[in-house]
Design a protein around this nucleic acid. Sequence first.
DNA 1: ACCTGAACACCGTTCAAGT
DNA 2: ACCTGAACACCGTTCAAGT
Lengths: 273, 273
Amino acid sequence: MDRERITAATVRLLDEEGLSKFSMRRLAAELDVTAMSVYWYVDTKDDLLELALDAVMAELLTGGTEAEAAPPEPAAPVAPAETVASTGAVAPTEAVAPAGADWRVRLRALASGYRSMIVRHPWASPLMGSFLNIGPHSQAFSCRLRAVLRDTGMSPAQQLGALSAVFRFVYGFGTIEGHFVRRCASAGMSQDEYYRDALGSMSERPEFVESFGSTEEIFGTQGFGGVEDLRERDFAFALDLLVAGIEAQAGKASARGPAGERTADGDPAAARG
Amino acid sequence: MDRERITAATVRLLDEEGLSKFSMRRLAAELDVTAMSVYWYVDTKDDLLELALDAVMAELLTGGTEAEAAPPEPAAPVAPAETVASTGAVAPTEAVAPAGADWRVRLRALASGYRSMIVRHPWASPLMGSFLNIGPHSQAFSCRLRAVLRDTGMSPAQQLGALSAVFRFVYGFGTIEGHFVRRCASAGMSQDEYYRDALGSMSERPEFVESFGSTEEIFGTQGFGGVEDLRERDFAFALDLLVAGIEAQAGKASARGPAGERTADGDPAAARG
DNA sequence: ACCTGAACACCGTTCAAGT
DNA sequence: ACCTGAACACCGTTCAAGT
């Protein structure tokens, strides 16, 4: 009975039953302990949730581009013990990209990893709020993203803007996706069934059918591989948009010279090389 | 005592005290009524929250590009009665754009309006989940966005991808922004104070200071107008990224011809002109 | 048709008390 | 140092009963 075991049980319960059903009393029962003994290790429910959030953030750092990731195990691609124990050896590797690869490849890898983490743990996104000051693992992930953006050719000020854009976009995508997945599950339907129903209710509006065709036409389109495939393509397309936008901005930047508007002294691109 | 009055009181309470403090009992007290009489008009708390969500979605439709917006008042730019009554004459007009303007201008207007609505009502974003099947006002807004995207020169399939991208990105931006604003308020700090504190805790990590300078350097940078100004610029920059990405994709599309990969028969761009 | 009171099965958290 | 029981002030929702 220590903080790690409590955090692991919290993550497992949150994964299985969702944020709204999680309670201190439910957790205590799971740990075969009275309701209030958890409070010896944790000040408040919110503190515990922050610990759980930090634990799943660590999933994004298994194996790494640079050694700046987590305090323990500087280089070896070993997943944190508590996470493996809780989720049952789901070792996500999508946030890992070849160290010297093109920034586009690495950006896609980081974004995909972040997104899939949010989908794996739908309870995490409402807890993330601002990506400021929420644990060392989140900061380490942010560092990796910044390292990638340094190679885009954008000015430092543009890099900061792009950092924010990528973070928030992936957050939005993963959060909505997570909501949808959970809603399907709680309705006892497959994602395709739920999507078909939703389309059905939208087909009551005639302009919708005019734009996209009837439900049967959408599902019958050749190459339509279901909602999950659709979402995969939407995400890929959105990343294409971002990458194309970054390339355009980087072109502008190099045409006008390396200096941005916002940044002050201490150009990090120059300092790092 | 009817559904409209209940919905209006709900929106007002949610705005003032937040989603977590809202309860049926609290609402009943506000309406000077016993706890359970609300259940005569509303089946469940979740149903009521959906009503509230639909009510604030209507803010995005005041005044419009086309007459496809809300059932009442087809064209006149009049805000819905219940919203005006509840928020005290905050009549947002940001989602309105000149009808025949460039798609870039109209896209920015729609995105800004959506974002500011989310910030005005931070409780709305956790409720939005998927943008599918949540009320007629949301669908009408989606229609307007589609109408704008038709003018980008993208293929219909690309338009669908961009629709998803814009929606989810703005959602992510507004949600995180709303979280931050609320967190500052509940900590009793101004946004700049909170931001300074957060930077201070991040300055404990040396690579952060190496990249961006110390807190004093960041706040002292000429042209730094505080967090809110920073966020404004981040949002504008992110929209620039999206617009540039859309332009790049549209260029590809017109170079390869109008047909996309995903769409079936019934090309809406051709049908609408 | 509309509202109420009492009740049920929950919450997070405190606090004095046990070992 | 670690855990417990009882208690406080809350929840959403049901249901029989009032007018």
